[in-house]
Design a protein around this nucleic acid. Structure first.
Lengths: 211, 211
DNA sequence: GATAAAGTAGAACACAAGTTTGCTTTGATT
DNA sequence: AATCAAAGCAAACTTGTGTTCTACTTTATC
């Protein structure tokens, strides 16, 4: 990566500031005015340099078509947001996407999952300690991908139909029965008829704040 | 929030698609052409409606100055990214911001921390099981805020000077000594002279993928 | 110190793109 | 059917904005 001249650095910084402040990129004359550059051609010249060095992308003859390419630390980046629908524990109201109030949005880091695969993901805040042996504690946010089936041992949000409750457990299919196993040595598994248990999604990620 | 007409909805969708594809907003004529609308004034009319309903913001007489205001689930949102600097375990090379190669960037959900407070935060991938009792497992990403002091019991990245190693432990100051305590009942604490231990930051968040 | 390369200036140009205006269509209401 | 408001239409208008060209200045390089 070639180094930037002082002017190029200032132009790049100004573009970033401008985008942050306005939500769209500056025109060449905006940059010129703000940085007290004498001519638009100077700005154009340096934008060309910034483009060839890979910091921005531009489209010919199109207004404000400056796209910032590189992302530095501490700056705004883009991610995919999923709805935080509520709290999950042993014995709580049902969270179902689309049927529940959205409390908040959670931005999902790409390290957990990325892009298009997030269509059916939602987040729940964990209440209680039933999953501590699975390294999920009270107050953690779990990301759940909606799916109606699950394999043995997967961690799922499961609804017990006739009690109308949703709980976070590992699931094991045992013939006509379903074992919902807490990840906590001090707690016992619960058994239900398979027909009475409805998988509402599988845990795909965990987010915890320690502040 | 007023409902959108069919045309307004299509215009809004197109703006989102366009921004995603190009990194900048469409001009009125771009929208007109793409959606086969007969006149630019129709687009302008509906943009005005979208603005008064709070979906977008526009600036007068400025090209492509459409700013998307509302964020729906599954769409790109903005967050703050921090550098993922490497791996931390018992006995690993030192990760210090600015001195190490950046492996990746991690987008930090606002639920962990937000905005300006992220200046000195970096991320490390955890290797090993020394912190499982603190609900941090192998492969988790820990977010660490750089600070040189820590209080008793806080989870920190600590460097043992004469061994030039960094480790993730709870720290306890005990007179002239420092106790570095793993969060794993099968592991014993380590003791060092206080002068030989350097706090490199405190754990402020955890991110885990279960895919 | 000559020479080339990189950067700066100023102005004119051409098209991009938002706005305005007057008119027509549509659709609901009475 | 008459009415009225909202929505759509077409064209003209004005301003915004990227580009180009030429000339000049500074900065490296040998």
């Amino acid at each position: 990566m070639s180094a930037l001249s002082q002017r190029q650095q200032r132009i790049l910084d100004h573009i970033k500031d401008f985008v942050r402040a306005n939500g769209y990129a500056p025109a060449i004359r905006d940059i010129q005015r703000e940085l007290n550059i004498s001519s638009t051609s100077v700005v154009a010249y340096n934008l060309r340099a910034l483009e060839s060095k890979g910091f921005i992308r531009r489209s010919n003859n199109i207004s404000r078509a400056i796209e910032l390419l590189q992302q530095e630390d501490g700056e705004a980046g883009t991610g995919t947001s999923v709805p935080l629908l509520g709290v999950i524990a042993a014995g709580q109201p049902i969270p179902i996407p689309g049927e529940t109030e959205v409390e908040d949005n959670v931005l999902v880091p790409e390290q957990i999952a990325s892009g298009d695969k997030l269509k059916d993901v939602y987040a729940l805040r964990v209440k209680g300690y039933s999953m501590v042996d699975a390294l999920i504690g009270d107050g953690d946010i779990v990301l759940i991908r909606y799916q109606e089936t699950a394999e043995n041992g997967q961690m799922v949000a499961a609804r017990i139909r006739d009690e109308n409750e949703v709980t976070l457990k590992r699931i094991y299919w045992e013939g006509n029965q379903v074992r919902l196993q807490p990840a906590n040595v001090t707690m016992d598994p619960m058994y239900y008829p398979a027909a009475n248990v409805e998988v509402q999604g599988r845990v795909v990620g965990v987010i915890r704040s320690l502040n």
